[in-house]
Simulated assay, not measured.
Amino acid sequence: MSTEKMMEGKVAIVTGAGRGIGRDMALLMAAEGAAVVVNDLGVSVDGGESGETPAAEVVREIESRGGRAVASYDSVSDWVAAGRIVQCAMDSFGRIDAVVNNAGILRDRFFFNMSVDEWRAVIDVHLNGSFYVSRAAAPHFKTQSSGAYVHMTSTSGLIGNYGQANYGAAKLGIASLSKQIAMDMKRYNVRSNCISPFAWSRMIGSIPTETPQQQARVEKLKKMEAGKIAPMAVFLASDAAHEVSGQIFAVRANEIFLMSQPRPLRGIHRGEGWTPQTIAEHALPALKSNFYPLETSGEVFSWDPV
């Protein structure tokens, strides 16, 4: 097994890196040789002020281990502020090699009760934030003809969950954003991939547990360590993943899954075209056996993690 540090000489930005999954990714990036911009607003799960400085604490931890890091307190959900996050890397370390879009909030509520503010807040942080930070880094990646994006998607978007219309829409949007970035930036030797993490975090701890199904889902997630996600992030950000782009990986405890992406399942043709009546009479019976059930993420991943 190689002992070479996979991020030696690299500079990485990790957003939402003050706690949880982001913190573990920042620490491992640094342990693998990267200089790290530890970005975190220091806010609560719902986006409110917490008055803490977790980013600074992570920086101190990295430096105490002989690594290099700098704290950033700008918001990913603001275009100008996101630009400052990237500029922080350039000012502090002179370049940027990897962006990990991890910052996130939850405002779970059933769709029929969800407010416009709850919708916008989650979309702004997850989807807009991933675009803003990625877009700010793009000119630097183009100039140096290298770079890697790692985005965090979720089975809440890829599969579905109750009470997460805002979060699921944002996370499925991120999967598509990653694919488009991979296609547009391929000519500049820039890669873009997604991780769909299963891990206990402050965000997961805020999920409502009003039903036995919700309680079982959260209890299962409590057993999954946030640190298990970091190795995949480091790999995707490193040169070892130079052939990997446009993919979605789910990481659940010691399991790694390559997730499917939408492709045609079955098609039917009618020479004279279709009417609403013939769709009901002929198309529906032919296609129905391939319909996807309304399953939640927990129902699809129904076995215990190993």
Rank of each mutant, 00 (worst) to 15 (best):
S75P: 07
A137M: 06
V234F: 05
V306Q: 13
Q215F: 12
N101F: 06
T143G: 14
A55I: 00
S130R: 03
S92W: 03
A31M: 13
S206E: 10
S289E: 14
I123A: 02
S2R: 15
V86T: 08
V244E: 10
L158W: 07
I105K: 01
A175Y: 11
G22R: 07
S196R: 02
F235C: 04
S192V: 00
I204L: 11
E57F: 05
G33A: 03
R252V: 06
E272A: 15
G173H: 08
A280K: 15
Y162N: 14
F257T: 06
A138T: 13
S145A: 14
G147H: 08
S178Q: 08
R263T: 15
S260M: 12
L106D: 13
P54N: 04
V122T: 05
D239W: 07
H151Q: 14
Y132G: 09
D304Y: 07
D74H: 15
A233Q: 04
K228H: 14
K223N: 09
D184M: 11
G273H: 04
D117W: 06
R23I: 02
S72D: 12
V76W: 00
R23L: 05
S77F: 02
E225W: 13
P276A: 13
A216E: 11
K223Q: 14
G18C: 05
R23W: 07
V150M: 03
